[in-house]
Structure formats: structure tokens, C-alpha cells
């Protein structure tokens, strides 16, 4: 059994079971409350040598950016799997994840802008490579959602959208690596960089990332389930219409 058929026979049912599970809903609620409790109760509001309450936005700003990166990676994988197998589930997963990912990217930009207004005294900095590449991601995925919504049931447009989803993903690792590839104005690389001391409270950050990943999972699970139900309803309506036509006028229904 190759990897693709294993994904079809085992992966899809496992993902459906995960999306149906009510544990996700309760875990999301629990992690959300715990995250907010830790951010406002124990997290340090001193970062990069600046002490200000606005630094507390960083915990959800980083969590949102992480969840957005995961969401867009899932979109990429969903698009690739749809192109390889043409199974509608992968297309639903790719689009749902792209939709939630777009929401997360938007909120990352909003929270970053609010943070920057206090710390940098500027809502936006065109000179910062991370900000600009993240805005490019926002435009790329806005385009993805627009093309998808314009496609309707057209199989060829679904394939074109999937190719776009794969090519557009290049911007995600590019944005992550941008602060290492080019000279950043404000966003300095923090992971593995001994010169930067972010002094972030790690447990609060991990809880926030977990909460936002669970929110992402809950939203995507709900959206995929909705898309699958809608597809079944559309098939049932089409079958009913065909039956009515086959029976002839005046004989359909009771």
C-alpha cells in the first residue's frame, strides 16, 4: 500500500474522527482561559529591555503567527493531495485551512500593528522585511480565497486554485527566513540568536501557542464538516430533482 492510498484509507477517517471529537472544543476553551490567565497573571511585560504593558500582546501575536503558518502549511499539503488524488476531502481541508489561516494572518498584522504603535511609535514600517513579506502572504491568500470562491463547482478551476495554493506557499517560509536573509529593521531573529534577549515568559507563550493551535483545529474541523455536509445535501437535492424529472410532471412528491 503506497503513502497516498494509506492517507486515503486511514488518514481521512482519522481526521474526520478528530474533527467530530467534542474534546477539541473543551480543550480549546480550557487552553484559551489558561492562556489569558497566564498572560495577564504571570507573564513578563518587559521585552528587549523595554517595560510596557503592550508587550503582553506579543504572546497572542506570536501564537497567531504560529497558527497561521501551520494553517497555510496544511493548505499547501491539502492542495498537493487534492491534485494527486482528486479526493474532495483534501480540497475542503485546503480551503478551510486557508480561510482560517487568512483570519490568523490578518489578526497577526493587527496585533503587530498595535504593538508597534506603542513600542516603535508607528502603526506600520515599510522598511521592515518581516512586515512587508507578511503583508505579501496576506495578499497571496486573499487571492487564493477569491479565486476559490469564483470557481464554483468547476473542476478545472479547483485544480488551478490548488496549483495557486502550492505556489503561493513559497511566501510563508520566505517570510519566516526573511529576517535571516535580509537585514531587518525591527524584527530581529530570536530563535537560536544569542545576541537577542527577548525575555519572554516561556510557559505563557507555549500556552498561548497551544490555545491558538486548538482554536485553529476547532475552526478547521467545523468548516470541513460543514463543507462535507453541504456536498451531501447538494447531491441529495440533485438526486431528488432527477427523480422528479424521471417521474414526469404531476407525479413527483406526495
Amino acid at each position: 500500500m503506497n503513502v497516498l492510498s494509506r492517507l486515503e484509507t486511514r488518514g481521512i477517517p482519522s481526521l474526520r474522527a478528530l474533527f467530530r471529537s467534542s474534546i477539541i472544543k473543551y480543550l480549546t476553551l480550557l487552553a484559551g482561559v489558561a492562556s489569558l490567565g497566564s498572560v495577564f497573571g504571570m507573564a513578563s511585560d518587559s521585552m528587549y529591555g523595554v517595560s510596557n504593558q503592550i508587550n503582553l500582546i506579543a504572546y497572542w501575536h506570536i501564537g497567531l503567527a504560529t497558527a497561521a503558518a501551520v494553517a497555510l502549511t496544511v493548505t499547501f499539503l491539502g492542495c498537493a493531495l487534492y491534485l494527486a488524488t482528486e479526493t474532495p476531502f483534501w480540497e475542503f481541508l485546503a480551503h478551510s485551512s486557508g480561510e482560517v489561516g487568512f483570519l490568523m494572518v490578518t489578526l497577526t498584522l493587527v496585533t503587530g500593528s498595535v504593538w508597534g504603535k506603542v513600542i516603535w511609535n508607528s502603526w506600520w514600517e515599510w522598511t521592515d522585511i518581516r512586515l512587508v513579506t507578511f503583508l505579501v502572504i496576506w495578499f497571496i491568500y486573499a487571492g487564493y480565497l477569491l479565486i476559490y470562491s469564483a470557481g464554483g463547482d468547476s473542476a478545472s478551476l479547483k485544480r488551478i486554485t490548488s496549483v495557486y495554493g502550492i505556489v503561493g506557499f513559497v511566501t510563508v517560509p520566505l517570510s519566516y527566513l526573511s529576517t535571516r536573509l535580509w537585514t531587518p529593521t525591527f524584527h530581529r531573529p530570536t530563535t537560536g540568536n544569542p545576541d537577542t534577549d527577548a525575555t519572554i515568559t516561556v510557559p505563557a507563550l507555549l500556552l498561548s501557542i497551544a490555545a491558538l493551535l486548538l482554536i485553529y483545529l476547532y475552526f478547521v474541523g467545523s468548516r470541513v464538516q460543514l463543507r462535507e455536509l453541504k456536498r451531501r445535501v447538494n447531491y441529495a437535492r440533485r438526486d431528488r430533482t432527477l427523480d422528479d424529472h424521471a417521474m414526469g410532471p404531476g407525479q413527483g412528491g406526495e
Partner: peptide
């Protein structure tokens, strides 16, 4: 602005 940020989210 901290309140604005979290409220927006």
C-alpha cells in the same frame, strides 16, 4: 492599545 488588540482578536 492592549485592550484594543485583544478585543480585535
Amino acid at each position: 492599545l492592549l485592550l484594543v488588540g485583544y478585543s480585535a482578536v
